[in-house]
Design a binder for these strands. Structure first.
Length: 434
RNA sequence: GGAGAGGUGGCUGAGUGGUCGAAAGCGGCUUCCUGCUAAGAAGUUGUACGGUCAAAAGCUGUACCGAGAGUUCGAAUCUCUCCCUCUCCGCCA
């Protein structure tokens, strides 16, 4: 959430920045309501002040019986006015808060203008696009190799759920471990958080209140299935004041992720690309404000390092103002090459949120000089989406004989196995235990 | 699921209906002291939102002792409801 004071004092600049998002956001109503809130608050406070003065007279003093009666009568009057004003004030505040929480972060000055993904800019490309004659889709390979079972996923749940079998399941697990190990070696502290979180968490990172229909909710317990590890991990330090020496904090976390994909009807209906449940390793950083731009670049590099280790061709794009997520100030997407589709697909999204999430989640640190608490800057990035990584490996590393060559770095995680083959799908060797 | 205990500042932990934004300790900050360090002495130190101000500081108002309602001139303190945590028992991976 943005700072209401900044909006109030710089309405035109804020509006201009929001216009870059092409989302039809306006602060004019918010500014008007904010004014009303403060006026009403002032009235309310004056009544309270008078009421406090009256109590003070009782406390300290000698007041005659008549005076007491007069004061009591006045209190009664004050109270009836308060009863009048209070619901108004609450309603205005609720309205202001909802409006404030529904306004997205301001795009960073450095990112390109544009209304949608067509205006995104490619920053870099890495790796060589493999020369494969008539490449198969990963879902065709998954079916032939017997490692992706879409029909049974539907039987067990509904569409957009999949069953991984044999080497499919093992690859998923190997990727998870490999990613966590690599990030861990770079100083990201591993976290395994709850997969169900309360509403405060969802509001804290910006999923709610604006996108209520996008998530799975367990009504009976008022808990949400996490749509990304970003939610529980960013909320780890919610409502805390950290010491400056504790910063920066870097975390990595594996969680399954659950998304209803409302509004994605008909999109990516085939394959292992857009699931209601998918696995992901996430990077989350808590940093001092001055360092967040730097940390953003480094975090993006850390995500890219996974793709490079797996030798998957990818490119990095910087999202234009109109294509960026709600809470982000600046966002890089990493896109991996899918040979059968003949195009790049998103596999990671690395965002700098500035103090936007910190203000919502009340994440603060106390400067070393002992000054007032300040909001932390938060960042996060996928490192990486595991399902899409598996799909990308299958397509990019498919061999003429129908097998898939396993990237070198994963071989130790798979008991030395170098290829995914149909024959072996049913009798995979036990992983080397020592 | 049953029974009980409890939710107070950055942390631990007192708290009588008004003198309580709240004792004490720890931690933080400032100064002093001793060759350095350790230790010691004194002082200081909550958060949010308003107002004032060009701005900061300062001053000032209001709120905040889990959340909400009630009693009262006045509630951290009394009453009710809810939420959460802990302990014991039961069940369970």
């Amino acid at each position: 959430m943005l700072d209401i004071k900044i909006i109030r004092d710089n309405q035109d600049e804020v509006q201009a920045a929001l216009d870059r998002r092409h989302g039809g956001y306006s602060v004019s109503e918010l500014v008007a309501i904010d004014k009303q809130v403060r006026e009403t608050q002032g009235e309310w406070e004056n009544l309270r002040r008078r009421s406090n003065e009256i109590s003070e007279q009782f406390k300290t003093g000698k007041v005659s019986a008549e005076e007491k009666e007069a004061l009591k009568a006045e209190t009664k009057e004050l109270k009836s006015k308060l009863v009048d004003i209070e619901p108004q004030l609450k309603e205005l505040e609720a309205k202001r808060d909802l409006l404030l929480q529904s306004i997205p972060n301001l795009p960073d000055k450095s990112i390109p203008d544009g209304a949608d993904e067509n205006a995104n800019v490619v920053v870099k490309s890495w790796g060589e696009i493999p020369d494969i004659k008539e490449p198969k889709h990963h879902y065709e390979l998954g079916d032939e190799l017997g490692i992706l079972d879409f029909e049974r996923g539907v039987k067990l749940a509904e569409s957009r759920f999949t069953v991984l079998m044999d080497m499919g399941a093992k690859m998923e697990r190997a990727l998870m471990n490999f990613m966590l190990d690599l990030h861990g070696a770079k100083g990201y502290r591993e976290v395994f958080p709850p997969i169900l979180v309360n509403r405060d968490c969802m509001v804290g990172t910006g999923q709610l209140p604006k996108f209520e229909g996008d998530f799975y909710k367990v009504e009976e317990d008022n808990l949400y299935l996490v749509p990304t590890a970003e939610v529980p991990v960013t909320n780890l330090y919610r409502d805390e004041i950290l010491d400056e020496e504790q910063l920066p904090i870097h975390h990595c976390a594996y969680t399954p992720n659950f998304r209803r994909e409302a509004g994605a009807a008909g999109k990516d209906t085939r394959g292992y690309i857009r699931m209601h449940q998918f696995n992901k390793v996430e990077l989350v950083k808590f940093v001092e404000p001055d360092t967040s731009n730097d940390e953003h670049e480094k975090m993006t590099r850390d995500a890219e390092a996974i793709l490079e280790a797996l030798e998957l061709p990818y490119r990095r794009i910087v999202l234009c103002a109109g294509d960026m997520g709600f809470s982000a100030r600046k966002c890089y997407d990493l896109e991996v090459w899918f040979p059968a589709q003949g195009r790049y697909r998103e596999i990671s999204s690395c965002s700098n949120f500035g103090d936007f999430q910190a203000r919502r989640a009340n994440l603060r640190y106390r400067p070393a000089d002992g000054g007032k608490p300040r909001f932390i800057h938060t960042l996060n990035g996928s490192g990486l989406a595991i399902g899409r990584t598996l799909a990308a490996i299958m397509e990019n590393c498919q061999q003429a004989d129908g097998s898939v060559k396993i990237p070198q770095v994963l071989v130790p995680y798979l008991g030395g196995q170098t290829h995914i083959r149909k024959a072996e799908a049913t009798k995979t060797p036990a992983a080397k235990l020592v």
